[in-house]
Amino acid sequence: MIPVRDPRGRRARTLHRFWLLLSAGFALSGCASRPLTQIDPPAASVELVDTPFFAQTEHHCGPAALATVLAAQGLDATPEALAPWVYVPGREGSLQAEMLAAARRFDRVPVRLGSDPQALIGALEQGYPVLVLQNLGLRRWPRWHYAVVIGYDPRERAFILRSGTTRREVLAERRFVASWERADRWAVVLAEPDAIPTATTVQDWLAGAAPFESLGRLAVAEQAYRAAITRWPQSALPWQAISNVDHALGRTAAAERALRRAVELDDQAVVARNNLANLLLARGCVEAAQRQVDTLRQVPPRFATALEQTREKIRLAAASGAADLAADCG
């Protein structure tokens, strides 16, 4: 494994064996983390050299890293302007949730990347600098640190970062991945709502966009959901998402159409059937609503409460003698 490139090779090998032995000792004593995924190195190195750099001041790597990924997209962001939104003095740091929330202020969808280091390289190749959380210490004595991955060099097997006060930090892949691993492999790219990064899943994209819906910023959510429908036409998820925006905007007919499309694509889409039942009930289609919930064979525990309420509403409506009066209950 050790390439013999110079006269020091032999010494390096001996040293390497020594470290291996010691590391084995640590592994046995429980210091080892789970094995790291092998990277299938890209042919050419990638480095987003135009990514701006903001040197962090004490404890302010959060605002600095966030400003870096925002400014890389041409947005007007500086660590000084971001600090009041993300810095927590008592913790001498920034929380992940608030980092994401701050990105949303700029109408950017924060997309969590997969836990494979390959996903980082994929994002870089597409031009996205990646915001990462590292734990530079140990699991037991964590030293949390935000940095921005801007490149990967396959020859050196090293990641290149904008980090702390270092404009261009070259970090051996093994070291970087280990520190990232200790921070549960948290990696995020900021995307425009209508431009979905390649290296993401429909689930992760929608999870990044959904907070806009919850917080009432429906125009941004709608943009992101529509992009998802185009990108994943066979998935039932974006249709369910868009129906929520339609519903929130009072476009009930459109909401119902979207949900019908969702159940066409996935007969057992629990949320779609549940929400469709509610919409049907609201326009007096009690029996049709009942049919929707009866179609479901299994309900995951996290939706059980909502579904039970829907069933209760249907029961109440049926008990009061309501029947399907509308002709188009479906």
């Binding site: 929608l206 959904a210 998820l237 519903h247 509610n278 909502a306």
Partner: peptide
């Protein structure tokens, strides 16, 4: 609410 939002969905 008996309606389920997108955050819960995903």
């Amino acid at each position: 609410a008996s309606m389920i939002g997108t955050e819960s969905l995903v």
